[in-house]
Amino acid sequence: GPIILQTYRAIADYEKSSSTEMGVKAGDAVDVVEKSESGWWFCQQKNRRGWVPAAYLEPMDGPDESEEQEPNYAGELHVVRKGYTAAQEDEISLKEGETIEVIHKLLDGWWVVRKDEATGYYPSMYLQKAGEEK
């Protein structure tokens, strides 16, 4: 049978920064073809296609909570594979090699992590589960 794609709406303008990405305007409806764990989603809109940051998209038919994991306040130990400096107030800056706790894994590629008393969003692609090889 036909493949039914999920339709999402862009919540803000996104200007693409590489050839495999697709730019969107706020309010655009796009079909999501593939959701990468990285938080980049492969989308199509008419004859255009490319990767769009998931954080710029919201489901057209209400929140898509079924796919979203619950927070785990106990935390899951991860090691920072690559450092990142917070660019927004709710993000956290970490250095390579630090061990932190992941308390909420979100589909948009930004996880809530805890380090000592601080919590904030961090790019999931820069984290690795503690005790696992890359």
Binding site: I11, A12, E21, E34, G39, E58, Y84, D90, G109
Partner: peptide, 22 residues
């Protein structure tokens, strides 16, 4: 064919456009 996703973290929209408050 779908190429691999970009290797940089996906950017986040500005706070005032965010769908869920932190």
């Amino acid at each position: 064919t779908i190429k691999h996703p970009p290797t940089n973290p996906p950017p986040r929209p500005p706070p005032d456009a965010r769908k869920k408050p932190p």
